[in-house]
């Protein structure tokens, strides 16, 4: 259970939002909506623990995230604007090392399988510099298939993806939610996950 209480965010001189409350329980999808510059990314970075809230508290299972950092981060995966894909490493090495660094080592076949599922089976060993923008984001998204984290925090995961990948991501979200996972998501595209009515959080 993830909870935010009376959160406020100030960037520079501007207050992006204040007195923001949200709660996210098992099997729930929270859709953060708002115009460009309304603080969606800041909110997500706050929830990850990358940005300290100006005011308010974020708690994970009733405990402030700052005081249970290791347990929280082991149970969370963040997908940000930058895909964290190294140009000099191949798609396979990127995903393999990303999983090891995040503390959930996956077997060779699992890594290959995850990349194959996202349609990258034919470019496993190509350096990521030769992949397109959308393919790089697919490499980053493949982490979602391997992680055992229950909380997914996804910042615009659908950008630069084609229709096929869009459906893949939506079905991934559906499976994760059906297993009792939690997803916090920002997007400007419509998201339809079968069997789930998303909660929305409107930033103005």
């Amino acid at each position: 259970m993830l909870e935010g209480k009376s959160l406020a965010c100030v960037r520079g001189e501007r207050t992006l939002f204040s007195r923001l409350d949200f709660a996210l329980g098992e099997g729930e999808l929270l859709l953060v909506q708002g115009a460009n510059g309304s603080g969606k990314t800041s909110l997500l970075r706050m929830v990850c623990g990358l940005l300290a809230p100006e005011f308010g508290e974020i708690s994970w299972h009733g405990e402030a995230i700052a005081s249970c950092r290791e347990r929280y981060h082991a149970d969370m995966v963040y997908f940000g604007h930058a895909p964290a894909v190294k140009e000099d490493l191949s798609a396979f090495e990127n995903l393999d090392l990303a999983c090891r660094l995040a503390g959930f080592p996956a077997g060779r076949d699992d890594v290959k399988g995850a990349l194959g599922y996202l349609g990258l089976g034919h470019c496993l060993d190509l350096p990521a510099r030769s992949l397109s923008q959308g393919q790089r984001r697919r490499v980053a998204l493949a982490r979602l298939l391997l992680t055992r984290a229950r909380l997914w925090i996804l910042d615009e995961p659908l950008t630069a993806l084609d229709q096929a990948a869009l459906h893949l991501v939506q079905s991934l979200l559906g499976e994760h939610l059906a297993k009792g996972g939690m997803v916090m998501l920002t997007t400007h595209q419509p998201v339809a996950v079968a069997g789930v009515v998303p909660k929305t959080l409107q930033l103005s």
Binding site: E70, Y78, G80, P83, A84, V85, K86, L101, A102, G103
Partner: peptide, 19 residues
């Protein structure tokens, strides 16, 4: 920092001092 790996490192359960 530029490609987002640093954020991912900060978000790993490993203590920052160690990595």
């Amino acid at each position: 920092h530029a490609d987002g790996t640093l954020e991912q490192l900060i978000l790993t359960p490993t203590s920052p001092v160690v990595w």
